[in-house]
């Protein structure tokens, strides 16, 4: 700290600063700030690569496991189960990935640096949205590995490369949207562990009470009713149509609509509860 004896700098004038101060954050500023936060999250990922374990292992493990366990029972054999299951696994991995968003946000928010983020003149949504932008990378890895593993096991998607890419893209969009639910949980829960257990309770019904692994027709009526309105079912059906037959069905629209509704509800809720926190 060789103090400020150095070059005589222009004096700080409070009156000028007050005159120059803006009352609100503009949209452009919000985007720049969100990207700066995303940069921070990416740096953090690079320095803590163990974060990628779940993203990398789960698709590989689950694809193999589910194919051999359920394949024979549900579809007769593993080969014919793959087109049904891979899009299901895709939805499941993406959901698990976005669950981590909430847990990590909670952990992060307990650190001192969040105090500084709050004291800076930045959009309140930036510290929440930044990590979610960086998480796009994780969704991409998870989705790619799922299809990769499927291909290794003999899955030959009828929709071709274009269909598969579209399915992956849809899954990423859905994951990012649903992540707002977990972000909200992250801002209301008291600890990272609490986020984890609350998220599990949301995640399990969403993934397993869907058509991800079993055909809906085999379910009792009351359960089938829930499965049909579950947004994960729409994602799975849409992804199946895209990957297996390059068909852009109405399910895509339903999925995107569900995403929009989730964002419209949970993004404002998250920001509000983040503001109130601390």
């Amino acid at each position: 700290m060789s103090t400020m004896t150095a070059p005589a700098r222009e004096a700080v004038r409070a009156a000028d600063r007050v005159a120059a101060a803006r009352r609100r954050v503009s949209t452009g500023e919000t985007i720049v700030q969100t990207l700066a936060m995303a940069w921070r999250a990416l740096k953090k990922m690079r320095r803590n690569p163990e974060q990628f374990f779940d993203v990398a292992l789960q698709p590989i493990l689950f694809t193999a496991m589910f194919a051999f366990i359920f394949g024979g029972a549900i579809a007769g054999d593993v080969q014919s189960y793959l087109p049904l299951m891979i899009p299901g696994i895709l939805a499941q991995t993406v959901l698990t990935t976005c669950m981590a968003t909430g847990t990590q946000l909670r952990e992060d928010m307990e650190k001192g640096v969040f105090d500084r983020f709050k004291s800076l003149p930045i959009a309140r949504i930036a510290p929440l949205a930044g990590p979610m932008v960086a998480d796009l990378l994780r969704y991409t890895i998870a989705a790619t590995l799922t299809f990769g593993m499927g291909l290794v096991m003999g899955y030959r998607p009828g929709g071709g490369a274009g269909g598969v890419l579209a399915a992956v893209l849809l899954a990423i969009i859905t994951g990012w949207s649903l992540a707002w639910v977990f972000t909200w949980v992250g801002t209301i829960a008291r600890s990272a562990q609490a986020v984890q257990s609350i998220s599990m309770m949301i995640l399990f019904p969403l993934t397993f009470l869907s058509n991800a692994f079993v055909p809906v027709e085999t379910l009792p009526g009351w359960l089938a009713a829930f499965v049909r309105i579950n947004p994960v079912s729409h994602l799975v059906t849409a992804a199946r149509d895209l990957a297996n037959s390059a068909l852009v069905s109405g399910e895509v629209a339903w999925t995107l609509l569900a995403c929009l509704i989730v964002i419209a509800i949970f993004a404002p809720l998250s920001v509000r509860s983040y503001k109130r926190h601390m």
Partner: peptide, 20 residues
């Protein structure tokens, strides 16, 4: 938002990012 542009805060506990 205006206040945050006028005030610099240094807390009792370091508020810098440990990962950077």
């Amino acid at each position: 938002h205006m206040i945050r542009q006028l005030v610099g805060v240094t807390g009792q506990y370091a508020t810098v990012d440990e990962n950077l």
